[in-house]
Write a protein that binds this DNA or RNA. Sequence first.
DNA 1: AGTATACATTTGTATATACAAATATTGTAT
DNA 2: ATACAATATTTGTATATACAAATGTATACT
Lengths: 152, 152
Amino acid sequence: MTIEEALHISAKLDLESKTAINLQYTSRLLEEKFAGLLKEYDLTTPQFNVLRILRGQKGNPASLACIQERMVDRNSNTTRLVDKLIKKEWVKRRVCPDNRRMVEIEITAEGLAVLKQLDPLTRELNAKNVEALTEEELVTLNTLLDKLKTNE
Amino acid sequence: MTIEEALHISAKLDLESKTAINLQYTSRLLEEKFAGLLKEYDLTTPQFNVLRILRGQKGNPASLACIQERMVDRNSNTTRLVDKLIKKEWVKRRVCPDNRRMVEIEITAEGLAVLKQLDPLTRELNAKNVEALTEEELVTLNTLLDKLKTNE
DNA sequence: AGTATACATTTGTATATACAAATATTGTAT
DNA sequence: ATACAATATTTGTATATACAAATGTATACT
């Protein structure tokens, strides 16, 4: 399906705009499916990302600023995002003893268990979402996306 | 920049997950820049998309359902989205005379003027956002994205 | 020490979004 | 005609998000 078909665009778009729009549209399709899976586990995408970041810390706690820095999604109000996860007891928070301005956030055993349960499911869904591409095409796509990001 | 670097991921991801995440992350970078431009013109991304869809109608009005169908973004509550645009006088709404359940939405001259003003700016921004890729690479990227969408 | 500045997080508030239920209109079957 | 289902939109409500201002803590300067 071309992006013109998907959006019912008749006017001819320049290649650059077409690519930018296509990227966002395609991404949105994947995001929605992913959000659907997470919802079954009472998680939103930003919440899931926070959990994943915390697991990546391998035992070390992370500050709020650290989490924000690594979020894929818009990251405003990480405080309240973490509040939700605390209420579910998937993370815990304490004031950093060395610097009481900072806060140390850590994933709990329950949080790790949820992620562990989700791991095969997210892997499976991701695989399904990109199954239209061969391995070689996946490598190419990754390379192009990485190149795009160097732009910053 | 690889996606592992961007997200500070040390664990090795399978190629499929990596690609899915990379796609969403890269897309988000573009989206944010685009939203920044629109904001200067008091527009959100969904609002901009509605205007663009209406312009694409070339004079024919569109129903709410028609707009929803064509939206790139999540499309819940198109009613209130259109309300915002009406308040700015960039679109107008009237009940469809043939079927009074339906509503006919049309872009105004002011709305068209705003889009016209934005056209070169969005084109320029899109071009800048993908400038790291050659024309050939852009074509390849588009092809891969189109292929990915056939999955539905 | 006292004051100003920078830093990290939290809170207030306005707006946006998601989801379900409600409303209004039309089409269909009896 | 009447009742019932289908369609298109709107509204209520809870939650999420964005942005700015506020809070509390640490650092630097005099």
